[in-house]
């Protein structure tokens, strides 16, 4: 059994990229105390709108921009449901996921009835020919810009402090003059835009096409990663790398087929099981943000 290690690392970084973007998006919204179950649908929306805009305009940049806008809209919608109306977070998040996926599938069927369209132009790989460094620019930005900047913003800026205050204790934040509503709206809109970029990466950079199973549960993986990382940026990135590494390994093993003992599905299931195990072992010590799952209403 021979495995090309460099190719493996390269594939790992590519697979981890959408998880890093969307995972950090989910992390930001959860820091404000909102469990955003619309992530799966928002990634799907970003993937589809990004593809559609890129296919129509011929430019992946237009696609990316459209995906960001669609993500902001999805985030605002989610915020309207759970912040303005104060609806149950899991039911509205799940409902929005189902709605967004249905809208995208409907439009896709309508426009492309049955054929499999491809983009004329997608984001090219930088540094061709080298296994590890041959990545899309979104991968570089995700790991080298997005993650450190988010980490710094959450940790050292007034914005991060406000988010933290709202997430931990919205009554105290409100008393201190921080608008709970505005903070959560911004967190959801920014976070959802990042999720949409994560989805758009799949169509605009990796596949250059759109299929109905394009996201296939990556949003749920991100939810797992964020909790596994206990709402911290670097552990979430690490978690994304570990998951992506197992996925890449599983793909390589499937190709070489020299190693049938471990089914690929088991390796794909590991991140979910790892989170549940971490929750089980960590037990009560896993501290959720204080205002998790709660809608704010002034008493």
């Amino acid at each position: 059994m021979s495995i090309n290690l460099l190719a493996l690392i390269g594939a790992m970084l590519t697979i981890a990229t959408p998880l890093v973007w969307a995972g950090i998006g989910e992390l930001i919204t959860e820091r404000s105390g909102v469990l955003n179950l619309s992530i799966e649908g928002t990634m799907y929306l970003g993937a589809f709108i990004g593809f559609l805009a890129a296919a129509r305009s011929g430019s992946p940049w237009v696609g990316l921009l459209a995906a960001v806008v669609s993500g902001v809209v999805a985030g605002a919608l989610m915020a309207f449901f759970v912040v303005t109306l104060g609806l149950n977070q899991h039911v509205s998040g799940l409902g929005l996921t189902l709605l967004l996926i249905a809208i995208c599938e409907f439009t896709f069927r309508l426009l492309y009835a049955g054929d499999r369209p491809t983009l004329d132009d997608k984001f090219a790989v930088l540094f061709r020919g080298t296994d590890v460094l041959a990545q899309h620019w979104l991968t570089y930005v995700g790991f080298l810009v997005l993650a450190p900047v988010t980490w710094w913003v959450l940790r050292s800026t007034g914005l991060g402090m406000r988010l933290h205050a709202v997430g931990e204790s919205f009554e105290a934040a409100d008393v201190a003059g921080i608008s709970v509503t505005a903070t959560r709206y911004v967190a959801l809109m920014v976070g959802s835009a990042l999720m949409a970029i994560g989805g758009a990466f799949l169509t605009l950079a990796v596949l250059g096409s759109f299929t109905l199973d394009i996201v296939s549960g990556r949003g749920w993986v991100c939810i797992a990663l964020v909790i596994f990382a206990r709402w911290r940026v670097w552990p979430a990135v690490l978690g994304a790398l570990i998951f992506a590494g197992m996925d890449a390994l599983q793909l390589q093993l499937a190709i070489t087929s020299a190693f049938d003992a471990v089914p690929g599905e088991l390796m794909l299931a590991l991140p979910y099981l790892a989170v549940i195990a971490a929750l089980a072992i960590g037990g009560r010590t896993v501290r959720y943000p204080g205002s998790y799952l709660k809608a704010y209403r002034r008493a």
């Binding site: 549960g217 599905e265 979910y272 929750l279 037990g283 799952l293």
Partner: peptide, 25 residues
């Protein structure tokens, strides 16, 4: 342990699908 069930029940859904796929493959 008082662990929130939303996340655990949700995350077991994709695992169940993987179990089905693993069995069928």
């Amino acid at each position: 342990a008082g662990i929130d069930e939303v996340v655990t029940t949700l995350l077991l859904n994709p695992v169940a699908l993987l179990v089905v796929q693993g069995l069928l493959n």
